[in-house]
Design a protein around this nucleic acid. Sequence first.
RNA 1: GCGUCGGUGGUGGAGUGGUCUAUCACAACAGACUGUAAAUCUGUCGCCUUCGGGCUUCGUAGGUUCGAAUCCUACCCGACGCA
Length: 408
Amino acid sequence: MIFKIEKKLKNSLGRVGMLETPHGVIMTPAFVAVGTKATVKSLNPEQVRDAGVEVVLGNTYHLFLQPGDEIVRDSGGIGKFMNWPGPTMTDSGGFQVFSLGAAYGKDISKITKITDPSLLIPERFDDSDAPRLAKIGQDGVSFKSHLDGSIHYITPEKSIQIQHNLGADIIFAFDECTSPTEDLRYQGEALERTHRWAERSLVEHLKLEEQKNESIFPQALFGIVQGGREESLRKQSAKIISEINVDGKYFDGFGIGGSFAKEDMSTAVRWVNEILPEEKPRHLLGIGEPEDLFMGVENGVDLFDCVLPTRLGRNGTIFTKTGKIIIMNTKFRNDFGPIEKDCECYTCKNYVKSYIAHLFHGKEMLAGTLASIHNLHFIVNLVKKIRQSILDDNFFEFKEEFLKGYLK
RNA sequence: GCGUCGGUGGUGGAGUGGUCUAUCACAACAGACUGUAAAUCUGUCGCCUUCGGGCUUCGUAGGUUCGAAUCCUACCCGACGCA
């Protein structure tokens, strides 16, 4: 994997670059489509590609459980398995430590608002008796399969082994995505744990790379920075993760993970990217909304991934330049215009809102597909436009103009 | 014409003397969703409301009863059977 920076955004951390992988080039900043179970939900690879997607992200935990990482390996790797010829990534399962752990069965998001009352609780809320499918040990995480209840212990080594079997071009260290409801003391403990796991991930990765024969593509490993909303922890994490090395071999790039408050996400990202080595790519995990993408790029992020375009699409919420719309709302039943008249996506070129609303009301499968195509195109294209605006020296103008219309 | 069964909120369909504005499902309406446990979930869903409550509903009209969607009578409507 080779990363080249083409141009920097003046007076900020932003940059435009290119990331070369064994399966093709990613023009950064780029939005990565999420294909957790080796499929971008409701879309086939041609539709994903036509939406402008350059790279797809699968998930270690899900593919380990089903169909099993060895099956993916034996089929020729995740890209071949899912018929996606381009670059691929896999997440390590670290997010499931949160989503199946602290967040399981609760109404908790990794993105909070400062006004969220749960953040005002000074003491850590002890809910260790609450049912959860992921339980953290010092050595790894015990997962109770959401599919059949079977127990699986995932260590950093195990996650890396699985990811080597899955065979994505870029893989991530096993981390703990810490819940925003945890107190500072816990955040610190979790951070130390994530750092230990990062080093073990790197050791295992280098070992497996060494054992590979030439017929197998080399993989790049990204370390993950955590630290929640806390400045000292974020900075400490960025420093430690970027310095971790085994015999002079470092992480190939970095993920920025964990929970954020919407209001101060930009500062958290800036703290980290001011410290991470400039010449390596940074991936802001699980973000985001259009305004978050501008924020991330401006603060030095090269890659984003998020389930939002496809999840919102399947659930009937559609991105437009003037804000999100809920296509099932009554007013769209007889709206015979496209979602966006100047949109180049397949959905907008061929269908009107009335029809898409009809498909959703009728619970037709095509509904989620058409909405996902548009949403994915919208977000992927937004990042491409942001990229171009940096090349054209009008990033800040573009940002202001877009957000003025979008956030209204 | 006679007989039997049945008519419940937008729909289907519970309820068969009080705890009934009436279980439940669907539809409808609104909302949520940020490294996917998710083509999912939440709320509203008779009318009015100063959100305390007030008022009116179970084919129609009467009646019995302290009290009726629930019992009785008549009528209207539907299905089936016999003429």
